[in-house]
Each structure stands twice: as structure tokens, then as C-alpha cells.
Simulated scan of single mutants.
Amino acid sequence: MIIYPEVHLARFIKRPNRFIAECQLIDSGEIVTVHVKNTGRCKELLFPDTEVALSYQASEKRKTDYDLIAVKKVEEWINIDSQVPNQLASEGLLEKKILLPGLAGEICSLKREQKFGNSKFDILVETDQGEQAFVEVKGMTLENNEIGAFPDAPTIRGLKHVEELIKAKKIGYQCYVLFIIQFEKVKTATIHEKMQPSLAEAISLGQKAGVHVLAYSCQVSPATIDIQKQIPFELNQEFEDPNR
């Protein structure tokens, strides 16, 4: 579980650019400029007057004192911190909350940011039976009708990672794409094909080559996020973009 320090509730006002937003603290009424911990569009989440969660992390090295970490959508909190999925994935794998199908033996080593070809994969695990596996982690915050989808904007980096995983699989690594769904109420996860057809095609080729695609939902509160359970990943699931 990840627990954020000193969390305050606020109302979203506007987002001048992808890095910062202006919010009004509910307890004091003060208007503050905050760092948005997600460079994605989040257009379906960040509406004026929406309730948000801010973590106070003041430092002389920072330009803002607060991080915007979560957004309330109807009655559900959605974590939008793009740095949190890798940490949750690492903890989940070591604590056996996340299981990798087809992997022989028990995980005895986990390394972050491991280079392969022209990419760096998020995680490399090794087992006590000598098997090695790359795990590429992707955070998922886009939702509609309890269907989670990735991406909310085209990702060249994400496409390259899938293509590199296929190459790694061919030379003997076990390979996984792991979606960390940063909200709770979700029935299935999929690729937003209309947003990026090339990524959907690459995922399909990857699955045929033996790359596993997994999705896990999370329990989210304003101040916490933790792995909840595995969710079915269905590449052919229809998804209606709430932003269109």
C-alpha cells in the first residue's frame, strides 16, 4: 500500500498546462497552484469544482507545495499519480498480490529500470529456477461504464515497449504487460483502439507471440492506493471514449 503524507481535499479550478493546476482548499478556501502528477489529458476527470486530493510536500527545491494525486468521479476516487503504478507493481510481485502466469519458480530477485535493446523495461524478475521475465507496467486512469482503457492519448513509448517485449520473448524471456488500474469499480480492461490502433495491433501480435497481458484494479482513497484484484483483459472489448 502507498500512503501519501498530509492530504488535503480541494476543488479543482483549472489546468493552465499539463504540469500544473489551480485548486481551492476546502478547509481554508485558499487558492493554490499544484503539481499534477500525470501529464495525460485526464479530460474526463478534471472539471471545474471537481473534488480532488492534494498531498502537501513543501520543499525549497519545489516550485509548488502540493501534488494533485487523486480525483473524485461521482462517488469513486481515481488516483492519477503516474509514478505510483511501478511501485505498486514491484510491491505486488514481491508480496504475491500480483501473479505472473507461465513463470517457473518463485521470484527471488526484482530489479527496476532494466535495459533491453532500445528500451528500458520497468521490471526484470528472476526466479529460483533461473527464469527471467520483463514486466512493463502501465497505469490506467481512463474509465467509462466500468471498463478501463489505455491509453488516454497516443503513446509512442508504449508502442515501442510492446514491440521490444515481442523481441525479448523470442529469445527466451517471459514477457508481460501489466496494467495497474488506478480505481476500483471496473469489470474489464482493454486497449483504447480508436485512440491508437497501432497499439491495439501490437498488443494482439504480442499475445500471439506469448506476451501475457494482465490487469489489476486498486482500492483508492484520497490518501492511499493498494492493489485489489486481477481484472480480465479483453482486447476486443468495445470502449466508448467519455471525452468524445
Rank of each mutant, 00 (worst) to 15 (best):
G158Q: 03
M1Q: 11
H8A: 04
N17C: 13
F134K: 06
D67G: 06
S198K: 15
R244W: 14
R18G: 00
V137R: 07
C42I: 13
V36R: 14
K61F: 11
V135K: 12
I31D: 01
R41T: 15
L110I: 12
P151A: 04
L68Q: 05
K73T: 06
G105T: 09
A104F: 13
V135M: 13
K138V: 09
R244Y: 15
I225L: 02
D27C: 04
S198A: 14
D226M: 08
R18N: 02
Q114V: 15
E6M: 11
D122C: 00
L99M: 13
Y56C: 08
G102P: 06
A10C: 11
F47C: 11
I20P: 02
E106Q: 15
T127E: 06
E44A: 15
G210I: 04
N243E: 10
L142N: 10
R112I: 02
N144Q: 14
G102C: 03
E75R: 05
P85V: 08
K61G: 01
I3M: 09
N118C: 03
S90K: 11
E51L: 11
G105K: 09
K97H: 10
F121K: 05
I203E: 07
L142F: 13
C108Y: 12
Y173A: 01
T127N: 10
K120F: 07
G158C: 06
A149I: 06
P197A: 04
Y4N: 02
Y216W: 09
L205W: 01
F233P: 06
T39F: 14
E240Q: 11
H161S: 09
A215F: 05
I80A: 04
I171D: 03
L103T: 03
D128W: 10
Q228G: 01
V71M: 14
I13A: 12
D122V: 00
L124G: 06
K160N: 14
G206F: 09
A189Y: 10
F183R: 14
I107T: 04
P85I: 11
Q182T: 00
F19R: 15
E51H: 02
N79H: 14
E91Q: 11
D128F: 09
E60F: 10
E164G: 03
